[in-house]
């Protein structure tokens, strides 16, 4: 049985899609058959970040509505054959998703994959509820600022009350905190919340910390999940995060303020 992991946050623009792409790619690179699903119906960002937007023929909504078979909608990644993407529709809205339809798709995907990563839209409405409903685990993406922490808290409450596991009285969804866009210099200045602050406020185990890094924007413009970039801090931090998700011990890195070398300062970047 595949593990279903939702990547969610409540707040928009905190790095859910970036995280979904890199965690899915990271798991696939470790040899696990992984599919990442875009639940952000109407916006469709995941296939851009994964660099497969030109290959989208059918999407999840077509499958739910019976216009296409699941295997027709699945796209295999060109860099890693263990990685698949189930894109979403840009022309429909989130009402096109329902529990039954999503449940059937997940059931079918369970047969052939080890991990199913669900990229949630922002907010706490239908799209986000559909993305988290069937989850076994949840990665809560949080930026080091008060409003992001508050929204993460809100979505944790919803997971606790409205997920399938909650409704059916099963073991609760396993919660992971992923702090993203962390800037040690600004934390040191007191402009951002520290890892300790966030952990204390949310009270869930820390899965990882992704530093703020220009390489993320570059990677998404290039259509490559940043985890493929072994040089960048963000890429390495995502690789560490995946290792922890797989149960390996792996100390936090990149907590210190990055000192740019003289050469880098001269040439910029």
């Amino acid at each position: 049985m595949a593990k279903i992991i939702v990547v969610t946050s409540g707040k928009g623009g905190v790095g859910k899609t970036t995280t979904s792409a890199s965690i899915a790619a990271g798991l696939a690179l470790q040899g696990h058959a992984t599919v990442v699903i875009d639940f952000d119906v109407g916006l469709r960002n995941l296939d851009l970040i994964m660099g497969c937007e030109r290959r989208v023929v059918y999407d999840m909504v077509n499958v739910i509505q019976g216009d296409a078979r699941l295997h027709q909608a699945l796209i295999q990644d060109k860099r890693c054959d263990k990685l698949h993407i189930l894109p979403t529709s840009q022309t429909r809205d989130k009402d096109a998703l329902d529990k039954q339809g999503v449940g059937q798709i997940l059931d079918e995907l369970q047969q052939s994959f080890d991990y199913i990563i669900c990229d949630s839209p922002a907010g706490i409405e239908r799209g986000a509820l559909m993305a988290l409903y069937y989850a076994d685990e949840a990665v809560i993406v949080t930026n080091p600022e008060v409003s992001s922490v508050r929204d993460s808290d809100r979505i944790l409450g919803i997971l606790h009350a409205k997920s399938r596991r909650a409704e059916q009285g099963l073991a609760p969804v396993k919660e992971h905190l992923l702090i993203s866009r962390y800037n040690p210099a600004r934390v040191a200045e007191g402009e951002m919340l520290s890892i300790e602050d966030i952990q204390e406020l949310l009270g869930i185990p820390l899965l990882g910390m992704i530093p703020e890094s220009e390489s993320v924007l570059k990677a998404s413009n290039a259509g490559t999940p940043v985890v493929f970039d072994r040089e960048s801090r963000a890429g390495q931090a995502y690789a560490d995060t995946v290792r922890r998700l797989l149960g390996h011990d792996c100390p936090l890195r990149f907590l210190e303020v990055e000192k740019k070398s003289l050469l880098k300062r001269v040439f910029g970047g």
Partner: peptide, 27 residues
């Protein structure tokens, strides 16, 4: 016995309430 999170409400009707975990901002 679990955290009460932003947006959540708990009501002990007719009696006392004991919370053994955090009551977060917005709860």
């Amino acid at each position: 016995g679990h955290p009460v999170r932003a947006g959540q409400q708990i009501y002990a009707q007719g009696g006392d309430l004991v919370v053994l975990a955090a009551v977060n901002a917005g709860a």
